[in-house]
Amino acid sequence: MTAKTTQAGRRLRFEIFRYNPEDPESTPHMQTFELDETPYMSIFIALNEIREKQDPSLQFDFACRAAICGSCGMMVNGRPSLGCRTLTSDLPDVIKLHPLPVFKLIGDLSVDTGTWFREMVEKTEGWIHAQEAFDPDAQETRMDDDTAAAIYENDRCIECGCCVASCGAANVNEDFLGPAGLNRVARFAMDPRDERSDADWFEVVSNQDGVFGCIGLMACHDICPKELPLLEVYGYLRRKALSSAMSKRG
């Protein structure tokens, strides 16, 4: 075989959630669109096609269309997915699209993940806490490459919100840091440049809005389009909470 140039010519049916809060006449409902499948068609291509040829008022978010910016999280047939990297060829003839839950709805498929993530960064103080100011004349502080690689692994989160939307606990407890939030905590907790102590982290992590808000549903881990090792993150944080509580007692 050389290459697939075409796929079975299917007619796809998109059932899309519609609601424009800015329009007093709009009420939440589902709207159906039909589209012929083209080769390599993704939800990104399909939605643009629908907007440009069928209903120009359709709202959705894409920026990079390359699975790196995290703009395009949406529920595709009940599963939070990045629209840009979801191929219609992997989906049945009927494709149901909903906005991500948890996040504030902007309109149709568009939700406000930006505000959620900014608040999460503020809440977890997701930046390096260092006493010393940057010295432009000094050589960089050394870091072991394995440590750098481990931090990078958790730094890869693109804040798409798919994990948060997939997490039952996050859906019912709006103060829960959520998978991406816990991941952010772990990312800084393991960074030797960050001077926050175990005791500082203990307070952030050891409660129902922190890692104990997680009830081990594991959807986050299965859904994360960047395949972040989220379950390992929770294990790491739980063990860290336990050990820091024990060491203080001892």
Binding site: W127, I128, A130, F134, P136, A138, Q139, E140, T141, R142, M143, D144, D145, A148, A149, I151, Y152, D155, F188, D191, R193, D194
Partner: peptide, 18 residues
């Protein structure tokens, strides 16, 4: 040069020399 080192200070996990 300064820019890259400052970014290390800001927390970029640059790949390091082994």
């Amino acid at each position: 040069q300064i820019a890259v080192r400052e970014l290390a200070h800001f927390g970029v996990p640059w790949t390091r020399v082994r």
